[in-house]
Design a binder for these strands. Structure first.
Lengths: 242, 242
DNA sequence: ACTGATATGTGCGCTACCGTACATACGCTT
DNA sequence: AAGCGTATGTACGGTAGCGCACATATCAGT
């Protein structure tokens, strides 16, 4: 049983008017996105933009001493490589595949050309960028004020929203990297959630058993981000026939 | 001796081509920006965009329990109200005047019309927005990993870069609000910097005595942000004849 | 079944920061 | 010069998260 792939699995692509989609579609290239792949490195030139369908990608800042933190997460609702059309060509962040799967990519020049038509594609991408900005800002605040446990809940829910099903493949070590905390801190927080029956995990597989329970325990940051995505990109809401 | 005001004191306005500037200039309105004024509130409709000249404005997220954190700072290098042209009309952040002074404002609709010409104005604003994104992301990382003292240094330097002279008016209480830490934490860090002769302060006035000393002590976050602003907005560099 | 690699669990001392309470110092007003 | 409001200094116990060390558990391959 092979899984069917279509660009419509990405909500941004799916939200494009027919004419724009028809123009872009021939140039979309399906790519496998294995765990750990860096779609781009800090400061590197962007060759493509990526539209994840079944994968999740983290935007990470890595510091000189190796410490890192995730500033945003991008899945089937978004696009990677916004620096391309924002005019900067590159950015100081890294984009790393956090949950493997597939996505479509588009050559940098084609993306720029489409954007420069200053039509629906541009408007959609800018709205998405604003939603991404909100996510980054809320992450900054969450980093400052909230406990590891709350942040773990936020991270789980944000990831879950971007994947089908209620399972995700991710070791605690990797989650710790994303959150910028110790692995042991994640173990402790995850253990607590498991003891309370909200999640179940073993060796890199996390199953969410009680999503409302997680939502009851997460900080407000999750809801702020979700609400803002829904507000800015309402068209992405009902397109879930994958 | 009255101070002369001109829109060219704002680097974005100054960087506009003559034709664009001529079109916008008649609609610019000089406004005083007193300490504590909220240019816009979380979720509120934006009536104007603001171009600070001698003031500094903080983008703040305030949470349900009152805790807050600054996610970016905007001065004479930038603009407030990017949500307007990004398509969202509003944003979940607050913009609060942190250092009083002046700025110019432009009616929301005029700003949108200019942006929608999809010319130099748009390109400049998008580049600025990308620089702002970098600042927000780096703030998130800094919040996660760096000590209050390092963050204070970063904050002082970023503010100083946006003001003439080497002095700023700001109580430790307010700085604590920006950084999202206790006032006592700021007192301690500032006291240490003062004992080492890097700064001098009393009752809301901070004088930077040894800027290289601060730069030697700040975390990398400051330089990353500054470098990215310089890279994305090089034209703003030499326009310092106020 | 054995081995090695990887993932998770646990304990311990340490530090930065928090919350709180209160003391001191400065500047403005009268 | 006195008085008041605001800004800053200091102290103290409490705690979340860190760095480290090491124990245990699970999976993959031979």
């Amino acid at each position: 049983m092979s899984i069917q792939h279509t660009p419509h699995q990405n909500h941004l692509l799916d939200a494009l008017p027919a004419a724009e989609f028809a123009r872009i579609q021939p140039h979309l290239e399906l790519v496998k996105m294995p765990l750990g792949l860096a779609l781009y490195e800090s400061g590197g030139q962007l060759q493509h933009v990526y539209f994840p369908t079944t994968s999740i990608v983290s935007l990470l800042y890595v510091m000189a001493d190796g410490a890192s933190a995730e500033i945003a997460v991008v899945g089937n609702e978004g696009i990677l490589g916004i620096a391309l059309f924002m005019g900067g060509e590159t950015t100081p962040s890294r984009a790393v595949v956090q949950s493997e799967g597939y996505g479509y990519r588009l050559k940098a020049q084609l993306m720029k050309d489409e954007f420069n038509r200053a039509g629906p594609v541009m408007r959609l991408l800018l709205r998405y960028t604003q939603a991404l900005i909100t996510q980054m800002a809320q992450t900054a605040v969450c980093n400052r004020h909230h406990s590891v446990e709350k942040q773990l809940c936020r991270w789980l829910l944000l990831s879950l929203d971007r994947l089908p099903g209620n399972e995700l493949s991710m070791t605690q070590e990797l989650i710790a990297n994303m959150l910028g905390v110790r692995r042991e801190g994640v173990t402790e927080a995850a253990g607590k959630l498991q003891r309370e029956g909200l999640i179940e995990y073993s060796r890199g597989h996390i199953l969410v058993l009680n999503r409302p329970g997680l939502e009851a325990r997460v900080c407000e940051c999750y809801q702020v981000v979700k609400t803002e995505f829904d507000r800015l990109l309402p068209s992405l809401h009902n397109s879930v026939i994958d």
